[in-house]
Design a protein around this nucleic acid. Structure first.
Lengths: 205, 205
DNA sequence: ATTAAAAAATGAACACTGTTCAAAAAATAT
DNA sequence: ATATTTTTTGAACAGTGTTCATTTTTTAAT
C-alpha cells in the first residue's frame, strides 16, 4: 500500500512542522512565553491538530529537548577526532560551554527546565538516554585520561560528575541570570576567565 | 500617633502571613503548582488582598527568595568561627550542599527560577545583593587561602566563580532531576562521592 | 463519477491561571 | 452618631492548557 506509506510520511512531516514552529517561537520569545495557540498560528493549523500529534505540551518540550541533544551531538563530533584524551577533555569543556551560550534556550530546555523530565517519568521509557549518552562520552574521556596516569586518587564516576557539574554550573548561573547580579570586576569576560580556570584545574589534578 | 504605628505593624504582619502561607504551599506542592488563590485560601483572605500587599506574583517570589538567603545565612554562621580558611572553604562546600538538599525548593527559587530575577530587573533596586553577599563570602575565603599560599597561579575571582559553579552545578543537576536519568553505579551516594571529589580537587590546587 | 467509510482537522467550550477594580465592609476620626 | 478614611472583597477580564463532538477532507468501493 503506497497510500499508507505516504500518509505515514505526511504524519511525520506535520509532527516535524509543529516542532519546527515551536522551536522558532522558543528562540524568539522563550519557552514559557510560547503557547500552544502561538504554535498552531505559526504553522497555520488549529490548536486541536497540535493535540492530535502531541499528547500535551510536555511531549513537545521533550521532543524538542531530544532535538537539542542531536544538535549538541553535532558540536561534539569533531571532539572524537582528538586522540589525546586530556586535550579532548579540555576542548570538550569549551564545546559544551560554546553550545550552551550559542543555544541558551535549548540548553535550558535540555538541562534545566523540569517539564521534559516529567514527561520521561510519566512515559514507559523511564531512562533519560540522551543525558546518559552525553555523560558517558565525558566519562569515557576521563577514563582514558586516568589510563594515561592523570587524576590519580580520583574516582572515575564521581570526578566525571564533578567536571560536568563545574561546566554545567557556569552555564546555569549564566543562563538563569545569576552572574548579572554578582558584580564581577569584568562581567563580560567572566565566562572565558572561568574556562581558563577550568583548564588550570584539570591540569593540576 | 499610636494607631498609625499599630496599623503599620498589622500591615507588616499580614505581609508576613502571606509570605508564610506561600512558603508553606511551595514546600508542600512546589512553586509552579501554587497559585495566588491557593495562598489566599491558605490564610483565609481573598485574592484581592494579596494584590494589595504584593504588586504581583514575582514580588512574592522575590521576597521569599530573600527569606531563603536569610536562611542560608543561618547555615553559614558557624562557618565564620573557623579560622583556617582552607578548612572553612571545605566546610562551606558541605554547608552549601546541605542547605540545597534540605531546602531544595527554596534553593531552586534562590538560584534557578527566573521570576525573582525578573523582579529585580524591573525594580529600581537593580542589584542582586543577596547573591552578591553570598559570593563575596566565598571570595573572601578563597582570598585568605591564596594569602596562605594555596591556589598558586589562579585568579581569585574566576576561581571563586568556578568553585561556586562546581557546587551549584551539583545542586542544579540534582534538584532539576538530571542525576536520575544518568545511571550512576550508586545513585544514592553520588552527591557525597561528589563532595569527596570536591575535597580532593581543592586540596590539589 | 457517485457514494460510502475512514481519517484528519477544527474551534467552541471547560476549568484553570494572574490580575484588576468598583463596590462593600470595617475601622478611624470628628 | 456621623463622616471619612482604610481595608477587604469577589466578580470580571484576558489569557492558559486541554478536550471532544462536529465538520471537512481524503480514501476506497461501486
Amino acid at each position: 500500500m503506497s497510500t499508507a506509506e505516504r500518509k505515514a510520511r505526511e504524519k511525520e512531516a506535520l509532527k516535524m512542522l509543529i516542532l519546527k514552529g515551536a522551536k522558532k517561537l522558543f528562540l524568539e520569545r522563550g519557552i514559557e512565553q510560547t503557547t500552544i495557540r502561538n504554535i498552531a498560528d505559526e504553522i497555520d493549523y488549529s490548536v486541536g491538530t497540535v493535540y492530535v500529534y502531541f499528547k500535551d505540551k510536555n511531549a513537545i518540550l521533550h521532543d524538542l529537548h531530544s532535538i537539542g541533544f542531536q544538535e549538541l551531538g553535532g558540536y561534539f563530533i569533531e571532539l572524537f577526532a582528538i586522540k589525546d584524551p586530556m586535550e579532548r577533555l579540555k576542548k570538550m569543556g569549551f564545546t559544551y560551554l560554546k553550545f550552551a551560550m550559542e543555544n541558551s534556550e535549548m540548553y535550558d530546555l535540555m538541562f534545566i527546565v523540569k517539564a521534559p523530565m516529567e514527561f520521561i517519568e510519566s512515559s514507559d521509557n523511564q531512562a533519560w538516554n540522551e543525558g546518559a549518552d552525553t555523560f558517558n562520552a565525558l566519562k569515557k574521556t576521563v577514563e582514558e585520561c586516568m589510563n594515561q596516569g592523570h587524576f590519580e586518587g580520583h574516582s572515575l564516576e564521581a570526578l566525571s560528575f564533578m567536571i560536568w557539574s563545574l561546566v554545567h554550573g557556569m552555564c546555569c548561573l549564566e543562563i538563569r541570570q545569576r552572574t548579572k547580579g554578582v558584580k564581577f570586576s569584568n562581567p563580560d569576560t567572566i565566562l572565558s576567565e572561568g574556562y581558563n580556570e577550568y583548564l588550570k584545574i584539570i591540569k593540576k589534578l
